[in-house]
Amino acid sequence: MDTREPVIVIEDLCKTFGNNVVLDHFNLTLYRGENLVVLGKSGSGKSVLIKCIIGLLRPDSGRIEVLGENVPDLNYHDLDLLRAKVGFLFQSNALYDSMTVRENLEFPLRRHWLQVEQKEVDMMVMEVLEHVGLAHTVDMMPAELSGGMRKRIALARTLILKPAIMLYDEPTTGLDPITGMEIIELIKQVQQQYQTSALVISHDMVLAETASERIAMLIEGKCYATGPYAELKTSTDPKIQAFFI
């Protein structure tokens, strides 16, 4: 159906918390260079899905192949290596409160490549900061920044490792519509510049419309439907239509 190389392949993914079935034989494929938005209501298991992909949660069963490797089978070391190639933007940004912006950005660099020289680190930090347009905040604390700025810093922190795949966990949630638009633009820009594949999890229809090549609908733990925005919008299925109201 698509000639491009798949970077994430999810097959029969199941995850339950107690009696609560969150993901029930979920299937999804992300291709190289693609921007895929996973839409779902709150509590439908979007965050669980993305955390399974990055290995923060262990699925009960099923395969998650990221860049050809099955995530649940990886040991800690290999998982680290894989994670260096996958950027993850947290819903709450997850900037370290006790560190300055610079230290926040340096943190993953130092962690993944301990041998990097200080000069090089400084350069990379400034580069990504300029890219998100916040070079002046380099010595500020995260608490001094606005929500939108924090989101951008968080994005810069994931970009600094030049990932092949970006995972966005509700990137526009909690931001005003204008700032949300800025972030959406930034996501698109990042994709062009760094040639990344992106999996975006959201319930923001604006984001789905403007930033996605393809949309996957997560309903009742299953991948209910996939397709471009326009195609899904014209669907007659009431469950799909419910998103577009």
Partner: peptide, 12 residues
């Protein structure tokens, strides 16, 4: 605020 998760993702 998911900082612990973020750390884990950043190879720590």
């Amino acid at each position: 605020t998911e900082q612990i998760d973020a750390m884990e993702v950043s190879g720590t």
